[in-house]
Design a protein around this nucleic acid. Structure first.
Lengths: 210, 210
DNA sequence: TAGATTGTTAATCGATTAACAATC
DNA sequence: TAGATTGTTAATCGATTAACAATC
């Protein structure tokens, strides 16, 4: 393990894949796995698996492989999944509703604590037991639940404004589903989950092979 | 422009960003833009913009910049957005419903022509005017509308099975929202839009800065 | 012409992978 | 021990960026 060298962005992006694969292996009661097998399951070479993990420590046994439970625990810690993370969601449209119902969250220690919107027609509605509140309550709910993560599921036109509000109440991580780039201070991390970009990439490949 | 050199994966990923930015500029009646300005708007250096575009041709005028309408038209052609692309969606859950209602599609020439599911409770329901059909009708609808693109919005456990069915009826591009890797023949392009991977990356950064 | 900006080459930077000593 | 597999170094590969001639 190296102390100083920056961890490649691509390595960090693969960690969730290792994590999920190991969780599955553990469920199947598989106790030990080699970097070769693990790599095959997620589609990367064994050297890549070993290199990626080496940035965080030595988790394997030479000649044997990696103990699934042990590596899983370590990845959980590295990824921050041993904590509970409350979330505020802004935007109670179709996508917002889908996200509230997304089963993947709770399993990861994530929980949408509040759903906010500006639309008076939506405020007061219930989504899977959560009442949609006015965006005016943002500060209140963020403080109440000690929320650090926000989801933007509003139209592109209001995304920046929502981002500004989130930043102003101390949100440090934003998952942005609006199809636009949002500008935030350096210490706030943004993950753009831009659906139209994803599908345009697919169309590109389709068009090439016609 | 080079004929032989492979176009970097990262360049292809940026094309949709250029496209969307130019569409916005065109709407604002901006007629000419430099690589510097375009780059600033999407967060890449001007050299990157010029290099990326150079893989496809020469679209600018030295000393002047890029004519917005002209470059937009070219990107539209390059990305395959000048065609109409019918889509079949498998999975009528929350996410499926959100996708059917996603406004971004039609603007790109994309249209969900049919929604399929295995769940008898969902078959027959109407989602924004589209009646959910049995997966058994897959072959029929794909042939009827000449569909080449499929969306998987089913649980991880059935994703591979759905992928196999899509491949067997001639689908060439799959947008996979299930949180699992699907295995398909080489000539089928898969775009994984794995929400839990995205959010784990955010949690990682949050956990680091605490 | 003088200033601006493209398209492209070459240098740099960063990520992947091959190779192998360490060791179970 | 013999076979297997890790962790790490060094080589390779691919992408980004600096520099600049071409030219509007």
């Amino acid at each position: 393990m190296k102390g100083k060298i920056a961890i490649p962005r691509t390595t960090i992006e693969r960690l969730p894949l290792y994590y999920r694969c190991l969780a599955k292996l553990d469920k199947m009661d598989i106790e030990v796995i080699s970097s070769k097998e693990l790599g095959e399951r997620i589609g990367v070479p064994s050297t890549q698996v070993r290199k990626d993990l080496s940035y965080y420590g030595e988790f394997g046994r030479r000649g044997v492989g990696y103990e699934v439970k042990l590596l899983l625990k370590n990845l959980e810690r590295i990824l921050g999944l041993n904590n509970h993370w409350p979330i505020v969601l802004v935007g109670a449209g179709n996508l917002g509703r889908a996200l509230v119902n997304y089963e993947g969250f709770r399993k990861l220690g994530l929980e949408i604590k509040a759903v906010l919107d500006t639309d008076l027609n939506k405020i007061g509605n219930s989504i899977s037991g959560i009442t949609v509140q006015s965006i005016k309550n943002l500060k209140e709910v963020v403080e109440k639940y000690n929320i650090k993560m926000g989801i933007i599921a509003v139209p592109a036109a209001s995304a920046q404004q929502v981002a500004d509000q989130l930043v102003s109440v101390g949100i440090k991580a934003i998952w942005n589903f609006a199809p636009t780039r949002i500008i935030v201070p350096e210490d706030v991390k943004v993950k753009n989950e831009d659906l139209s970009v994803g599908i345009i990439g697919l169309v590109y490949h389709l068009a090439r092979n016609e």
